[in-house]
Amino acid sequence: MSISKGDTVSWNTSQGETHGKAVRKRVSDFEFDGQTFKPTKDDPYWIVESEKSGKQAAHKESSLTRE
């Protein structure tokens, strides 16, 4: 699966499925919201923005579903 910037995606949270858009792909180690993330070439992270709250979060590409 290949996700591109601006794609509409969904992911699971403790509150259920959340929808939003892919904002930025990260392929090297980075810090976000006080946490350190270590993406790999095969499983990069995406900064996603919730369409409901507008908040951003980091998720592995493998945990996202393109809509």
Rank of each mutant, 00 (worst) to 15 (best):
W46L: 01
K5P: 13
Y45W: 08
R24H: 10
S53F: 01
G34C: 09
Y45K: 06
H19Q: 12
D33V: 00
Q35I: 09
D42I: 06
S62W: 07
Q56S: 08
S63V: 11
A22W: 03
S10E: 10
S4T: 12
Q35P: 11
V27T: 15
D33K: 12
S53M: 01
S4P: 06
E67D: 15
K5G: 11
V48N: 03
E17A: 09
E67T: 12
G54L: 03
H59D: 10
R66W: 06
T40M: 05
S4C: 10
M1N: 14
D43A: 04
S2A: 14
R24V: 03
S2Y: 14
F32P: 05
S53A: 01
D42A: 14
T18F: 10
Q35D: 15
R24C: 03
K60H: 11
W46M: 01
K55Y: 09
R24I: 02
K25M: 04
K25P: 04
E49L: 01
K21G: 11
T18Y: 11
G6A: 07
P44M: 03
R26V: 02
W46P: 00
K5I: 15
D43N: 09
N12A: 13
V9L: 02
K60A: 06
D33C: 06
D33N: 12
S63D: 12
E67R: 15
K25Q: 10
V9T: 02
F32Y: 10
E61P: 07
F30R: 07
E31V: 05
R26T: 04
G16I: 02
S50N: 11
G54S: 04
D43Y: 06
I47Q: 05
G20A: 01
M1R: 14
R24E: 14
R66K: 14
T65D: 08
K55D: 08
G16W: 05
S62I: 13
A57G: 13
W46Y: 01
V23Q: 06
S28H: 14
K52Q: 10
K25V: 02
K21D: 09
